[in-house]
């Protein structure tokens, strides 16, 4: 008997497919051949090892049987081709989850003026259109400097204007001619009175002209100041209104976002409750 035959007989004996007579013959052969017996024991040991793999319980999927063939719903959803992309799908799903969480928590990262701002709910981030304390101080200082320059230029203009008007006034108002009798050594009382009266009336005229001119100038100045103040108030009002409008829009957007989040949470709760009921 060759080795191959021994091997086949060994397997047949191992799996109990020999007739009684064959079995007896093989057992005698095994008793006389320790090598064969050892091999038998090894294979038997191997069988014990294989017996450790037990059947698994499984739920059969839902099949659709039809005239045009059959299909399994499980097959439709668990194609190997899809499973092949499972790692990519997992990565994409993780990214989507991160993005959703980031959106819901208002997570933001900003890089501005060599500074990186990371935060939730925009509390730690610098929003568009907002200024830091230093920037506000700088802006205020710039505006004050501009305003001072403007006021000084206006004052200077006014001063120049006054000077020119005053000069014009002075030149237009000639001193009364000195009467010839003042050249004499003796002047009568009457002549002196007349002279003084002329001087006084002349002075009065100059003062009156000056006051009128000054009053008109002041009136012009105040009018200009009032106009500018009115413009400033109007501009400020428009700016305030714009700020209020922007705040209202922000408030409206925040409310809308909160409403959407609440809707999502409610929908999630409803789905969970429905699933539990089913």
């Amino acid at each position: 008997m060759g080795t191959e035959d021994f091997n086949k007989d060994l397997i047949t004996y191992l799996y109990d497919e020999m007739s009684t007579e064959e079995r007896q013959q093989f057992e005698i052969a095994m008793e006389n051949n320790p090598e064969l017996k050892r091999e038998f024991e090894e294979l038997q040991e191997m069988r014990k090892g294989l017996a450790q793999i037990r059947d698994k319980e499984v739920m059969e999927p839902f099949f659709l049987w039809g005239k045009n063939g059959a299909a399994s719903l499980g097959n439709l959803f668990k194609r190997r081709s899809l499973m092949m992309f499972r790692p990519f799908i997992a990565v994409a799903a993780s990214l989507v989850i991160v993005l959703i969480i980031g959106y819901l928590t208002n997570f933001s990262i900003n890089y501005k003026d060599k500074s990186l701002y990371i935060g939730f709910n925009n509390e730690n981030t610098q929003q568009e259109g907002m200024f830091t304390q230093e920037e506000v101080a700088q802006l205020v200082n710039q505006e004050i400097a501009k305003n001072n320059a403007y006021i000084f230029s206006k004052l200077s203009e006014t001063e120049n204007s006054f000077d020119s008007r005053f000069a014009a006034l002075e030149s237009s108002q000639k001193m009364p001619d000195i009467p010839s009798y003042l050249d004499r050594d003796v002047v009568t009382r009457k002549e002196l009175d007349v002279f003084l009266s002329n001087v006084r009336s002349n002075n009065l005229k100059v003062l009156k002209t000056y006051l009128e001119s000054s009053s008109a100038q002041q009136q012009d100045y105040f009018q200009a100041v009032l106009t500018e103040f009115s413009d400033y108030v109007e501009t400020q009002r428009e700016e305030d209104l714009r700020l209020i409008r922007r705040s209202l829009i922000n408030l409206q957007e925040t409310q809308q976002t909160q409403k959407e989040e609440t809707d999502q949470i409610l929908a999630s709760i409803l789905t969970t409750v429905n699933n539990q009921e089913n």
């Binding site: 793999i53 059947d55 698994k56 319980e57 499984v58 059969e60 999927p61 099949f63 049987w65 063939g69 059959a70 299909a71 399994s72 499980g74 097959n75 668990k78 190997r80 499973m83």
Partner: peptide
């Protein structure tokens, strides 16, 4: 169950075993 367990022992992987078992019965049908 029998065919699933044959496939499971062949591949050692539940997903593959399910796939093969379903394909088998579709082919049989």
């Amino acid at each position: 169950k029998r065919i699933y367990n044959v496939a499971l022992k062949y591949f050692g992987e539940h997903d593959l075993a399910m796939e093969v078992t379903q394909r088998t019965f579709i082919a049989v049908y």
